[in-house]
């Protein structure tokens, strides 16, 4: 499969990349690892006239905690998350999800920023970041702005990024004590998109009640979605089996999957129900409940 011809630029700094976006507007696409964009270009689902390769920009690959937040540079490769002791020790939700993204060779090039900026509800990081109540930083001609994740995914492959903006950082509030998270993904084979997946992040208060909970769903809606009704049901409560099952049922009702080769609508709702309940249990266990 041969993509349509395009003009290629590889700026070495952010200012240069933004200037190119200002020049080419919506005729340009940003590429980092290329593992979402190139497959779409090979299928000619994407036919940008200009590809701006930002992988050579220094200083956008990092994973560290600072000022109450875990900060992940947009060009951080999935393999770096996979090998990070900080992520593996303290952010089990991210660790779970990263291992399930594509396969080892793809994770060597694919980036966290690209996974989000692509705006695909089938990607895994969007649901994870919804559950973690992250925000993303967009750099544009007028400087940086921080976008809460709930305002970022606007629709089918559509994000809040303007045509002259680049996603540069992901910020995740450092979880309080007695927090836990889990990502459960049903996939037909390694490397496939999720049939359905659930991301859960929760924290418990001193009485063992659920102080905060985030539930994100993968590939069961046009845009990455939060299971808000399920979260509202559980927040402030002791998480009994009955409540967990009710929350899982709500998530299955509220999602909006398409029938495809991965399964029917009913099947996917059933997976959401089962995996949401299991992910809540696993997150609770990890929170030390």
């Amino acid at each position: 499969m041969i993509p349509q011809a395009f003009h290629y630029e590889a700026p070495t700094n952010l200012e240069g990349a933004i200037a190119l976006l200002q020049k080419y507007g919506s005729d340009a696409k940003i590429m980092s690892g290329g593992h979402s964009l190139i497959p779409m270009m090979k299928l000619r689902l994407a036919t940008p006239e200009h590809v701006i390769d930002i992988s050579g920009i220094q200083g956008l690959e990092y994973i560290h905690e600072e000022g109450g937040a875990l900060k992940i540079g947009a060009l951080t490769k999935e393999v770096a998350l996979e090998e990070s002791s900080l992520i593996n020790d303290k952010y089990p939700l991210i660790a779970d999800a990263t291992k399930m993204i594509a396969d080892p060779s793809v994770r060597n090039l694919a980036t966290v920023g690209g996974n989000l900026a692509h705006g695909d509800a089938a990607n895994d990081h969007p649901a994870v970041m919804l559950a973690l109540r992250a925000s993303v930083v967009a750099a544009g001609p007028n400087g940086d702005r921080e976008i809460p994740i709930d305002d970022f995914f606007l629709g089918f492959f559509t994000t809040a990024l303007e045509a002259d903006e680049i996603l540069t950082e992901i910020r995740i509030p450092i979880p309080p004590a007695h927090s836990g998270g889990a990502y459960l993904k049903m996939e037909r084979k390694v490397g496939d998109y999720a049939t359905a997946a659930t991301a859960v992040q929760l924290s418990l208060d001193a009485d063992g009640k659920c102080a905060q909970i985030g539930i994100g769903l993968t590939n069961v809606s046009a845009a990455p979605m939060r299971a808000s009704r399920s979260e509202d049901l559980l927040r402030g409560q002791v998480l009994t089996e009955e409540l967990i099952q009710e929350a899982a049922k709500m998530a299955a009702q509220d999602c909006d999957p398409n029938p495809d080769l991965r399964g029917s609508i009913a099947y996917k709702r059933s997976i959401v129900k089962t995996y949401t309940a299991r992910a809540i249990h696993k997150a609770l266990e990890r929170a030390g409940a």
């Binding site: 499969m1 290629y8 590889a10 290329g34 593992h35 190139i38 497959p39 090979k42 390769d53 393999v79 594509a102 396969d103 080892p104 060779s105 793809v106 060597n108 090039l109 490397g191």
Partner: peptide, 24 residues
């Protein structure tokens, strides 16, 4: 389609699927 891995090569020491990397 970056599924099968037959095209795997090393780029700067790390395995990549060369059907999903531009030569540039």
């Amino acid at each position: 389609t970056s599924s099968c891995g037959a095209c795997t090569v090393l780029m700067d020491g790390r395995s990549v699927k060369s059907c999903t990397v531009y030569a540039v």
